[in-house]
Amino acid sequence: MPPINEFENDLKRSTPRPLSDDARAAVEARLLDAESARPRGEPRAAPSHAALIGIWASGFAIGAAAMLILAPWLGSPPEPSTPSAPIAGPRVPERDFPIAAATEEPPSDRLIAVPVAREFGRRHAGDREVLTVGRYPSVLRNHRSIPPGRRGPPADHNEAAPRNTVPSPSGSAEQMTRRELMDELLDEA
């Protein structure tokens, strides 16, 4: 019996039938089609893990830098000096207020507390606002928010003439006080 290596060599001398020409032609045609579809010939190799990690790290760095640059604009706005809208309530046009604020210095008896914007259903306990009256006294006089005892024309503290005056007996248009009139009559007597 020949050794096994010799028997293997005898086996190898038996040549398998070659691949058919049709199969070769089909493979060649497919190769040509693939090359025409892939001009560069070589397929791109799959990215390695190191490359993927590098891509991820660079993306993270870019994002962090962008956040640092945009941080001043992305921060919360500064706190307003006035209360926010839900606390103070919506702004109401000035004409809707029953009493408008005056620029002049009002007398103390014209300072009243009026519930603000009662017409809009926003009555809050203790939510009153002190308004000065000086420019629209007629509005103040008739407004229903004013207690009845405090309604009426405000005192006119700006009168220049004294209240107790009588016409001058001489018929002049000059007004004099009662005390001045008595002094004048006594002097004549």
Binding site: D22, A23, V27, A45
Partner: peptide
């Protein structure tokens, strides 16, 4: 032949 041909065509199109 068909089996070998199909195997080679798959090798042409193999992504990796």
């Amino acid at each position: 032949d068909d089996a070998v041909q199909e195997a080679f065509i798959d090798l042409v199109d193999v992504p990796v």
